[in-house]
Amino acid sequence: MNDAELREAHRAAAPLVAPRDERMAALLDAVVSERVRLRRRGRRRLFLGVASFALMLGGTGAALAVPGVQEWWFGFSPDRTDQWTNDTRQTCQASYIVGPIPGVSDTDPAVLAARETLEGIDFESVAIDEAVLKRGREMAAEALAAAEQKGQPTRDMWFNDPDAWAIFEAIPEIVFDGVKEQGLDPSRVSLEGGFDCGGPK
């Protein structure tokens, strides 16, 4: 048996893979399109109104949305703040605070790793997960319908922009992954975040 024969024998013994046909090509195209985005958000940011969240990362990204607690950032120094002017010329600010859960030191390696991850996030390139975006759209539609039914104004509702909300929701997941990637326990970390917009409309 020579090298070429060995190579061929080994190749032939490889586990089979699914057929690479048109169906597979279409499925792969869908996955790539969903996970690899050419488009970036640029400066299109339409956060309207107010939203905030507070969660322990051990619970991962689902436990978001505690609207109305934006006062948290008064008296605290956020670990990361991003400011921009949205399409309606409002000045907007998104801020995030990393901290330990009760009983954990502020210098715990997981907390430090979370801060480091948060610091390193490029907000302009945060990917939007289609599943989150879809959920955001559904939430927005439901909330808008409910508000309209009650005759409430909908102009300042934060969930008017599912795209922005999906990005906002992605931040805890990125921090969670960053802590996990360092082999540390994200459940020792809490992450609070909020955004608010004000000024001329």
Binding site: A13, P15, A18, R23, A30, V31, E34
Partner: peptide, 28 residues
């Protein structure tokens, strides 16, 4: 978190012979 496209691909792989190993004597 599974997206719709990932789920579709999962289903396709489940239905195919993907991952099975050839069982000829030489392969074994």
């Amino acid at each position: 978190r599974r997206t719709a496209a990932t789920n579709e691909l999962r289903n396709f792989l489940t239905q195919s012979q993907s991952g099975t190993k050839p069982s000829t004597e030489g392969a074994v």
